[in-house]
Design a protein around this nucleic acid. Structure first.
Lengths: 127, 127
DNA sequence: ACACGTGTATTAGTAACATAGTACACTATA
DNA sequence: TATAGTGTACTATGTTACTAATACACGTGT
């Protein structure tokens, strides 16, 4: 059961993103234990060192805490996890807006395009 | 006058993006001549071969046409340029929406977040 | 004490990117 | 025809980020 990765983006970033999303969606909660680097590496079909990089990054971001010999755990700091959600939201939104505006789209066009995609085109988006 | 580049993204992609945005914003029009690879390399502070890669990619995307000995020109095909605008718009929007939804945000939350960023927080966004 | 599972550190290899350099082919102009 | 400017192709080199392989250190349970 090997997971698939987008070849244009580093694997470790993709695993990191997956874990962050699991946290934000509530699939991983404060204090939950993450799989060991070796287990995660098996599941993901990558080298344990690649997973280690992910866990190191999670620790740097204060999303997880690692205990040598024990494993890595999602932080118990609920405020931090709440902040992660808000950070992800505002970063994704603001970089999207910045890109759109730099490309030359007006605020009205941006908003209407988002609304359309969200509520109108959902059923007809075959691709 | 050397342009700056974001170190986490390949230089050629950034130049490509800049040119596409200039087209979409109307700063470059159908039939306009692009600087020679040597001139653009000077302006951008990069190797001509890097610019050559950009122009090759522009041609592949049918955004520009190159004539050996003459230079590279934005395509005269207005329909293609219009399509480029729509493609950029829909790609940016749909990937944004996909990311937001995968992260766990609801359509309502997404739309409200975008509206806020566009219309309410503009003045107070100090960072 | 030993075995096992854990994280950690280090080294090696590789792909992608970027540069530098060079030479060729084409076009326009004097 | 010569010159200057254009794109094009190719080779060699260097750098960086990423990934894998391997071994070490720590913690827990028996």
């Amino acid at each position: 059961m090997v997971q698939s990765f987008n070849p244009t983006q580093p694997i470790y970033l993709q695993i990191l993103q997956r874990i962050c999303r699991q946290v934000v969606r509530g699939e991983l909660k404060a204090g939950d234990k993450l799989p060991s680097v070796r287990d995660m590496a098996l599941q993901a079909g990558v080298n344990p060192n690649t997973v280690q990089r992910v866990y190191t990054e999670l620790e740097r971001l204060e999303i997880a805490e690692t205990r040598r010999g024990l494993g890595s755990f999602i932080t118990e700091n609920e405020a931090r996890l709440k902040q992660l959600r808000e950070d992800l939201k505002s970063e994704q939104i603001s970089s999207f807006i910045a890109d759109m505006e730099e490309t030359g789209f007006s605020p009205e066009e941006i908003l209407e395009g988002v609304r359309k995609d969200l509520f109108n085109n959902k059923g007809g988006r075959g691709v």
